[in-house]
């Protein structure tokens, strides 16, 4: 009854606040779209200068999506490289082909080396291995690989921010005091917030998942129901963590200060970057981060098409985090009312 009243109030407040609604629903879509444009552009097409390269190789390189500019002398080609007109120069020297890379962009370096290697190999060897993919495929772009993590991250980030600020405002405007001067239980306050916000996080999760998969065309091997479930659980974790941490902030700015401490490290440890190269005990830190479990499950479902038995541990851990944060929140409210 009181929980329902609190939930209805939060929903009414939300509906009247168009800008916050836009932040919750449209901002993640905008950022995801930008990410898609940035990371899923056309294949890199390097400009390669050649000196005395046999026609067969030039043809091979052009076919492999490189712009070939032929030079008469090595000096001319090197000059063009220095003037930033070329990404690489290939010349035939005394000891065979020599490659000079422009070198300032690692991803471009790798792309060129791979391209040249493939071209030379195609000429040299007749045994080309047959390549098959267990998951994903040759067309999978970087965006498809970390997209699932981004879906989870943005749900988490925006819900954390909104929940934190809303609960803080309840405190600073004095309405929490008034709330606690009524016979509402502390647990009812927390549950009311969960219910009211839960509705919006559910809608947000569905919107983000639908948009990513059907509009942005993100790679999707699993079931959308599972994606929604994980996304919702992540949002609930963000909601309970946001309201809990708002107890330790005395104004909106201090909520913002939690972003570099609580949100950004989670992004690093959530699978956006490969952690295998990291010190093993540092890798363990990720076990304490809710986003790690959410991202793990999301990647499993969307890329590897995992089923319930594969990601259920992640579900239990996320539920555990939510329960823990909610419980701590009930305790934190003791600061405002002893019973």
């Amino acid at each position: 009854m009181r929980i329902r009243a609190l939930a209805i109030r939060i929903i009414l407040q939300f509906i009247k606040d168009k800008r916050t609604l836009a932040l919750l629903f449209l901002a993640p879509l905008l950022v995801l779209s930008l990410m898609k444009l940035v990371f899923d552009g056309q294949a890199i097409s390097p400009d390669i200068g050649t000196v005395d390269l046999p026609e067969a190789y030039i043809g091979g390189l052009s076919n492999a999506n490189a712009a070939i500019i032929e030079y008469d002398s090595a000096d001319e080609a090197q000059q063009a490289l220095r003037e930033n007109n070329l990404d690489a120069v290939i010349q035939i020297g005394a000891n065979g082909p020599a490659i000079t890379l422009e070198g300032s962009d690692p991803s471009m370096n790798k792309a060129i080396l791979l391209l040249i290697q493939n071209t030379l190999q195609a000429k040299a060897s007749s045994i080309a291995p047959a390549v098959t993919y267990l998951h994903g495929g040759p067309d999978m772009a970087p965006f498809d690989s970390f997209g699932p993590v981004l879906i989870g991250f943005f749900s988490f980030f925006f819900v954390f921010l909104l929940a934190g600020v809303s609960f803080l405002r309840e405190r600073t405007s004095g309405t929490l005091e008034r709330l606690l001067a009524s016979p509402i239980r502390r647990s009812e306050v927390v549950l009311g917030y969960l219910a009211g916000f839960g509705l919006f996080t559910l809608v947000q999760s569905m919107l983000i998942a639908w948009y990513s998969i059907h509009v942005l065309g993100m790679y999707m091997a699993g079931q959308i129901g599972y994606v929604l479930l994980i996304n919702l659980l992540l949002s609930l974790t963000a909601l309970t963590l946001g309201t809990l941490l708002s107890s330790f902030a005395s104004n909106e700015f201090q909520i913002i200060q939690f972003i570099p401490i609580v949100i950004v490290p989670q992004a690093f440890f959530s699978g956006l970057f490969n952690l295998d190269a990291m010190n093993p005990w540092l890798q363990k830190i990720s076990n304490a981060m809710p986003l790690f479990y959410g991202a793990d499950a999301m990647q499993g479902i969307m890329i590897r098409g995992e089923g319930w038995s594969d990601f259920q541990i992640d579900v239990y851990v996320l539920i555990g985090f939510s329960l823990l944060f909610a419980l701590l929140n009930v305790l934190a409210l003791k600061k405002h009312r002893r019973m």
């Binding site: 329902r4 009243a5 109030r9 009414l12 009247k16 405007s173 004095g174 001067a181 009524s182």
Partner: peptide, 28 residues
């Protein structure tokens, strides 16, 4: 008891009636 704090402690986005309905519901 009924309590009125120093701050107005109202929800500015909501109408007067919605505010009263909410606080009324808290008291059953």
């Amino acid at each position: 008891f009924g309590y009125m704090a120093q701050a107005d402690a109202l929800y500015n986005e909501l109408t007067g009636k919605q505010n009263l309905a909410f606080f009324g519901a808290l008291f059953g």
